[in-house]
Nucleic acid binder design. Structure first.
Lengths: 163, 163
DNA sequence: TGGAGACTGTTCGTGGACGAACGAGCGAGG
DNA sequence: CCTCGCTCGTTCGTCCACGAACAGTCTCCA
């Protein structure tokens, strides 16, 4: 708080604690400077670029994240795969189902644990994920286009720190 | 492409253009380094922090963005308000409806254009948005907690550039 | 002045995000 | 060996995101 005004104004002295308002903070608030808002906007733009570049594959960003990690790991349970890429179990249920319905993934039992469902890439799934990985750098490059290479690396580093 | 291998490997020379795969790019692809994936994860964390700090208000991040901008602008049409904060018209329809149903916003006709619906804060809406703005800095501060103040400003600057 | 083209809000469909609650299965400790 | 607590997948409800299509309205220009 950089200004000299009292933290609680005269107008607020009568109110209940929950309704006390810092007028100076209200006046100073700028939505477009808030980190959450900037991230939300950036997320919209990055998704749009992914859609444009990956159009031909008909796979969403989240579906691709699951496929890509499954490609790295080999057969993996739904929950674990979701944990690796940041998809909660309730969401993963739908994602895995859609990938299975499209024939990109197989859902099988885990012999060592009857609770788990093992996901595995099908041949088509492998072909799709490899095709997408081979042009994946293009998505990041286009998204980072407004920045210099140094700035791009810095942004990547800072985002990784706040995750 | 930093390596010296040919852009199209021998194994791919026989395939159709759509199936040509750069094996080296596939091998080098790291999901967790892709900017889109980092932004998605950051968005999840920022939303969780917003929910924790703003729990008492029962207003989502997107609803707050609309309320905050409406507070800045005064009565505004749905489409324009959406354009100011990055909410597309189809989404804005739902957001405005929920805010109106909760009594935070009034929807009225625009005398000068029969197509438009003017949104306006109610007394309760104003109280809520001012209460939220007065603690809004807390959300950004918590989100940026892992960074130094200089890094935080840099991240903000870089995100603004890629929007 | 009349019509073409643009804009506003609406609807539908698909997909992601997640809290909450639930049953079935697992595993460690009593 | 058995129970308690945890994990796994599932379901429900609410919300955001957005492409596509549509009807009503407006504007501008031929």
């Amino acid at each position: 708080m950089a200004h000299g005004a009292p933290a609680v104004s005269a107008a607020n002295r009568q109110r209940s604690p929950a309704e006390r308002i810092d007028r100076e903070a209200v006046r100073a608030y700028r939505l477009e400077e808030q980190i959450g808002h900037l991230i939300r906007r950036a997320h919209q733009r990055a998704s749009a670029i992914f859609d444009a570049v990956m159009r031909g594959f008909d796979v969403t960003p989240v579906q691709f994240a699951a496929l890509a990690k499954l490609h790295d790991l080999g057969p993996t349970s739904q929950n674990l795969l979701g944990r690796m890429v940041g998809i909660d179990p309730a969401t993963m249920f739908g994602v895995a189902g859609r990938l299975a319905k499209r024939g990109l993934v197989r859902q099988g039992p885990d012999p060592s644990d009857a609770r788990r469902i093992l996901l595995d890439l099908t041949g088509e799934g492998r072909a799709v994920v490899e095709g997408m990985k081979s042009v994946g750098a293009e998505v990041s490059a286009r998204t980072l286009d407004p920045l210099t290479p140094g700035e791009a690396r810095e942004l990547q580093r800072l985002l990784a720190r706040i995750c």
